[in-house]
Simulated scan of single mutants.
Amino acid sequence: MDRTVSHDYREIDVPVDGGSLHVGVWDAPHAGADTPTVLLVHGVTASHLAWPFVVERLPGVRVVAPDLRGRGRSNGIEGAAGMAAHAGDLAAVLDALGIEHTLVVGHSMGAFVSVVFAHLHPERVARLVLVDGGLPLDVPAGLSTDELVAGILGPTAARLSMRFASPAEYLDFWRAHPAFAGAWTPELERYLAYDLVPDGDGAFRPATSYATTADDTVDMNTGTALPDALAGLRHPTRLLTVPRGLQDEPPGLYAPEHLERLLGEYPGVRHERIDGFNHYTIVMSPAGADVVSAVVRQELAAT
């Protein structure tokens, strides 16, 4: 469990097609009818515990963040994933909590899910904040599933097939990760430990399966849900990108030339390049969360 100074944290399970979606809820103390709400949607192999840095910088705001199907404690849901399935799950979460519409913030794959959610359930979304994701990636056509996953996620995908003798061994694996050099925190340790589940043979594995990751990666890059959603984009949308990627490598997920083409194609998207961060630390570090939470507060004020 995680509890921030500014919020009361609880966990709920929401029935969805194929099983139960696990959701973290950070309630603002003394909340009333006018308390704003933000729905946070994590990345492709992450969980709701990617968000505590951002949450603690949003006092007075109710924050809702699910483990997407196939991830975290939602990894037992049966049936296919994909952007539309995730969008349906988000609608079920809002229904369960009695939330009519809300600001939606998505990171990485969560940004793609958020765009599709806004398209399929437009009345539920007030505004969108996309953090290093949500617009098409620059990937060659004709790649096989494995080639596509490896090309986008690299070692992140390979990790899903690894086994670890203990949580401590898993943490040691991540300590050597270039994205978190100088950015290791207790919150990050809790997030990583939460990711582990028993493999049935006395060891541990990441909660997200490779098959689920592959299905989602193919859908968000070659399926019709995302282009259809972007073609019909009507919600105020703000995109934050960073100059370094999943391995802390330049130019990140969106090379400048590719991003310039995208912004020309989708002129309604307001873009900001945030220097000094990689794909992970823009959300999972104190300094990155300072930036993201400030944008969230601005978008809440505009709602």
Rank of each mutant, 00 (worst) to 15 (best):
D67W: 01
H121C: 06
D95H: 14
A50R: 02
V116F: 10
H121Q: 13
F117M: 11
S108P: 05
A87Q: 07
L90T: 12
G82N: 01
A91T: 10
A85N: 09
A92V: 03
V63S: 01
V93D: 07
V93Y: 09
R71T: 08
R57V: 08
M109W: 14
H101D: 15
H119M: 09
R57C: 09
H107C: 11
A111I: 08
H48R: 11
V54L: 06
G98T: 02
L94I: 09
F112M: 10
D95L: 14
A91M: 10
E56R: 09
V54T: 14
L49M: 10
V63E: 04
G72Y: 01
L94C: 13
V116M: 12
A81M: 01
R57Y: 12
L68G: 03
E78Q: 15
D95W: 14
S114W: 11
I99T: 07
G82F: 10
A65M: 06
S108D: 15
P59W: 13
H119R: 14
A81K: 02
G110Q: 07
A85F: 07
P66I: 08
F112Q: 01
A92Y: 10
N75C: 13
L58C: 07
S108F: 13
W51P: 06
R73C: 05
V55S: 06
G98F: 12
A85R: 14
W51V: 11
R57Q: 15
L90G: 10
P52I: 08
V64A: 02
G98H: 01
R71L: 01
D67G: 05
V93P: 03
M83V: 00
